[in-house]
Design a protein around this nucleic acid. Structure first.
Lengths: 135, 135
DNA sequence: CCTTGACCTTCCCCTAACTGGAACCCCCAT
DNA sequence: ATGGGGGTTCCAGTTAGGGGAAGGTCAAGG
């Protein structure tokens, strides 16, 4: 298969696939004309990577996961631990974003949103006041 | 004030403050010796930026917000709209992360996490099976 | 007067994970 | 032979700074 075919079948852009080769995640063969020549196993790996990336794993996590996947003697505990660490990073991000959302929601509710300049959001950012009353 | 003082008082690293000058968010004066010389208004702006950044606004958002803050003829509607757009980006991120979390949580629960190689997480990433049973 | 240490300056490279574009090659159909 | 749609490499840019080098400045102490 050429890169266009695996791109379509894996759902990854060709650019990304070349990048993954660059950083050593995959090693497709080359045809006589210099084109990358992908086997089914390469496509399989790319699909694996696409799914792992979609679950938010970093590239380095993906590298590790791929290594574990190919290691028939792995311990599932190693996989589980990696995933749990990733999960806790995600939980932290969610918590942080929720805090932002809550604050911003409150600010938005306090702002008249008309054509007058008075704005509790800007006052808050300037540290001048709480949201519910004027400066 | 020198940069160290405003760094401490604004909570921003000196590096960040220099960067903000680089990209035109602030314009501190210079002393005769070439040192940046910050007025209270600069410190005020930096605190504004620190708070806006902590709420997840991009640097470009911050630039716009600062412009609105300094524009006495602004309409609060413009501020509100910017914040609402930012909010919807945050909501999207939260939703995405929650979806990842839910999937990963399910996968983790299915994995024995022992020293055997059999791992439903890897099977899932490989697209081989659902989580609750072997391949 | 000299030194020491803390502070400041600019400059350049590095990060993550790609994306866009330029310049060029290859293959097939007309 | 030529046009279009593949493919190739390499370079630069993205966010929001961080790390560190090489060097100027200032105040205190010996």
């Amino acid at each position: 298969m050429n890169i266009g075919d695996v791109a379509e079948r894996s759902g990854l852009p060709a650019k990304t696939i070349r990048y993954y080769e660059d950083i050593g995640l995959i090693r497709p063969h080359r045809s006589a004309n210099g084109y990358r020549c992908f086997a089914e196993t390469d496509l399989h790996k790319l699909a694996f990577l696409a799914r792992a990336r979609a679950l938010g794993f970093t590239i380095e996590d993906c590298r590790t996961l791929l290594g574990l996947y190919e290691d028939e003697t792995r311990a599932s505990a190693d996989v589980k631990q990696l995933v749990q660490e990733h999960l806790s990073i995600i939980e932290t991000k969610i918590t942080d974003l929720q805090a932002m959302r809550d604050t911003l929601t409150e600010l938005v509710q306090c702002c008249a949103g008309d054509n007058r300049p008075d704005c509790p959001i800007l006052r808050d950012l300037a540290g001048e006041s709480d949201c519910t009353q004027g400066a």
